[in-house]
Simulated scan of single mutants.
Amino acid sequence: MSDLEAKPSTSSSTEPVRVVGPRPPPSFGQIGAVIGIVLIHVGTIVAFTRDFTWKLVALAAATYFVRMFAITGVYHRYFSHRSYKTSRFFQLVLAFLGTTATQKGPLWWASTHRVHHRFSDTERDVHSPMQFGFWQSHMGWWLGREHEHTDFDKIPDFASFPELRWLDRNHAVGPAVMGTALYLIGGLDAFLWGYVVSTCVLMHATFTINSLAHIFGSRRYATTDTSRNNFWLALITLGEGWHNNHHHYMNSVNQGFFWWEIDVSYYALRGMSAVGLVWDLRKPSPQVLKRNLLKEVGEQSPLLLKQAAARAAKQKPELHVPLDMQPDAPPPGIG
């Protein structure tokens, strides 16, 4: 029997017939993504074997922070959640800046992220560590065929702009322009540190929100997923580590809800708002900040209910019953 033919069913006639077919080979896009990631890591190793200078480290840090903002403040908070407004021209400028982070186009990134929020921590989530484990949630999902192409139906608000669709198709233009400019300005070392090393660190730092921010940290709000707030992840991602806050109110321009929650991307957006580049920054109301507090309503995540019950059982004080009141105790004065 051919692999493409239906296998005879031995179960009841109400069950669907399963058709087994050959697994499709990796696509050109998948192969290119794997090669690119391998080259980024090899290039990072090469950079550390050459002459080290603090000037190169500063260059890598600068390009890291600018492009981390492009992911967190632009791809995430603007294109995914529309947490502020801007002009059509500056929207294109921000989108191009986002492509230099080498995480595909703005429409692909945002449409995929919207799927994550819609099905967070379920089997239909894009990158749930609770469902798929560390590797798949950190990087494996990014290389998968099922997430290779942009689903424009999930982002009709921005897919209506032809310039954004072009940039999304040609997202490699941004990294190419950036890498070429660094090489022409500072030579091979500037390219290796300003683009390669910076991109390698940027990629893994960004992906930790997918793989670690649902496992390590604290929960303030009783969301139905497993999102957590993590101070250290917030530092390296310019504010994205306040992930439980974000899943509580995803349209907020600030993910650090309180003054002590450092959110550098929000500070940058406030500065841009002050000079008129962006406006209508959406923030959670006082009512939103007090709604669904975990300490008041209890755990709501199906994946964490058992853990919450176990912790509650451990914290519950034992009830000490006097000996003469215990059901098996002998009557007073006997024995």
Rank of each mutant, 00 (worst) to 15 (best):
F79P: 07
V126F: 08
S27E: 01
T208W: 12
W141Y: 11
Y75F: 15
G21Q: 09
P24M: 11
H149S: 14
L39K: 02
R118Y: 09
L39F: 10
H127W: 05
T208Y: 13
P106R: 03
R114E: 04
A313D: 12
W135L: 15
R220K: 13
S9P: 00
A70G: 13
H117F: 05
M250A: 07
S27K: 08
Y195E: 04
E261W: 04
I236T: 11
G186C: 05
A308Q: 00
H149K: 15
R124Y: 10
D280Y: 08
G217T: 03
G276I: 06
M68V: 09
E5G: 07
I37P: 00
G43E: 10
W135P: 04
M250K: 06
H116L: 12
L167A: 01
R220F: 01
V297D: 06
Y266L: 00
I71A: 03
G187C: 09
V278R: 07
N292C: 08
I155R: 12
I40N: 04
K295I: 03
R219D: 04
G179M: 13
I334F: 12
S160I: 15
L94D: 09
I334G: 06
R220G: 00
T223P: 01
Y221L: 05
T237I: 13
H246K: 02
Y221D: 06
P24E: 14
N244Y: 08
V17H: 09
V66I: 15
A308F: 03
T14P: 00
L107K: 09
T224I: 02
K85M: 03
A61N: 02
R270N: 00
H127M: 06
F161N: 09
E146Y: 10
W135S: 11
T224S: 07
P16M: 11
H248I: 06
D51Q: 13
V264D: 00
K316L: 08
A234S: 15
S111F: 08
T86L: 14
A95N: 07
P22K: 08
G333M: 06
F79S: 12
T226C: 01
I40Q: 11
S27D: 05
R311H: 06
K306F: 03
L94T: 09
D324E: 04
F158T: 02
V201G: 11
Q287S: 15
V115R: 14
M130E: 13
V34W: 10
W135R: 10
V126A: 12
R169C: 01
G298M: 02
A308I: 04
K104S: 09
E296L: 10
G187Q: 12
P156K: 05
Q287T: 13
L192Q: 06
P162H: 08
L164T: 11
